[in-house]
Design a protein around this nucleic acid. Structure first.
Length: 344
DNA sequence: AATGATACTCGGC
DNA sequence: TTACGGCCGAGTATCATT
């Protein structure tokens, strides 16, 4: 979907079509502290982008022509579910990749027609615009879509797919972010085609076995063709920002309580028991730290974990000198409870 | 030595 | 001048068990 959250907000506030719409994650620390989640194209034109501090975005947006709105995840999730139904009505082999992305497998002959059909169905039924990429590989399709944005449709045959990928900057490759791109640059890997000049051993040593092998294959023009299977969620976490930085375990545990309640609801709804509890600390220098513990027997959403939380928080504070800015809780290592109530 | 579990970091989006 | 969220999975080092 094109600038999904902001597009949905444009739809809810029809007067703002040509205005800058900035969907923000307000942290509550101070009035405008937080970051930009999504911005529409007029906003991008003035240099606003995801992850930018809200204050910085406000400096770039003329107040009369812009609308700053808080994220409404529930609403976006509802829209996502509606889109998922449409996608699955039109196509058979579908894997939802995120709240606003779907990976779809079609036969060679179907590609062009299905893509247009889907784009039309989505516009007709939801009024939303999206971009589709169609290519022999999933990687090629994703990059084609990125290129054709917004409101586009790009079809590539194998030779054009190869050319596009080879000539792409490393950072344009899905899965390669600024950190990896920077490290590759050091090795002379600015574009995908440069990867062929980097020794596969060097790639593995620098990026690890798996990523190294993947990068090597990428340089050889080998792109995974299969879509894979839809995977179950493996963890759930809730993280929030403290009003002020602190080292007071009471304040930290208090905030954790609220976050835990929310994460617990998810466990309840999905009927999951978990074996691993983690506490996430983001310190004043914006670095993340975790402390976790696992239980021999899985715990349900109902079970008390006050003692365990306290232990982890106090351990962290004892081991680290930093002040805590944000705090989070994470449940993982799930065991499915299904319809089961008791064992006997 | 092999295998599996755990704790934690990285970093993409 | 600075400003700064909330997720998730991948990967890996290390520990425990056999």
């Amino acid at each position: 979907m094109d600038y999904f959250f902001a597009q949905l907000e444009e739809q809810r506030h029809p007067m703002v079509r040509e205005k800058i719409v900035v969907v923000c994650v307000y942290s509550g620390r101070t009035k405008d502290s937080g970051v930009v989640s999504t911005v529409n194209y007029p906003g991008r034109a003035v240099g606003i982008h995801s992850g930018m501090p809200i204050m910085m975005a406000k400096k770039r947006a003329p107040p009369a022509d812009s609308l700053f709105l808080p994220v409404d995840r529930e609403y976006y999730a509802q829209a996502s579910m509606q889109l998922d139904r449409i996608v699955r009505t039109v196509c058979d082999r579908v894997v939802q990749a995120s709240i606003d992305e779907w990976n779809i497998e079609v036969t060679d002959e179907q590609g062009a027609q299905k893509a247009q059909e889907l784009k039309d169905a989505i516009l007709k039924e939801t009024g939303l615009r999206c971009t589709l990429g169609v290519a022999p590989s999933l990687l090629g399709a994703k990059m084609a879509a990125a290129k054709a944005k917004p409101n586009g449709l790009l079809l590539l045959i194998a030779s054009d797919e190869r050319k596009m990928i080879d000539d792409s900057d490393m950072e344009k490759v899905p899965g390669i972010g600024p950190k990896t791109a920077m490290a590759l640059k050091q090795l002379g890997g600015e574009k995908v085609k440069d990867l062929a000049k980097i020794d596969t051993i060097t790639l593995s040593e620098t990026f690890g076995r798996k990523a190294g092998a993947w990068l090597h294959a990428l340089g050889q023009g080998e792109y995974a063709s299969s879509l894979g299977e839809e995977k179950e969620q493996e963890e759930v976490s809730r993280i929030g920002t403290l009003k002020e930085k602190t080292r007071d375990p009471y304040i930290i545990l208090k905030k954790l309580e609220e976050l835990e309640g929310d994460a617990r609801e998810w466990l309840l709804e999905t009927k999951k028991a978990y074996k691993t509890l983690s506490i996430i600390f983001i310190t004043d220098d914006l670095k993340a730290h975790t402390k976790s513990m696992s239980f021999r027997n899985p715990k349900t959403a109902h079970e008390e974990i006050a003692k365990e939380k306290e232990t982890l928080v106090k351990e962290f504070l004892a081991e680290n000198p930093f002040e805590v800015r944000r705090i989070g809780i994470r449940f993982g290592n799930f065991m499915d409870l299904g319809g089961q109530t008791t064992l006997f």
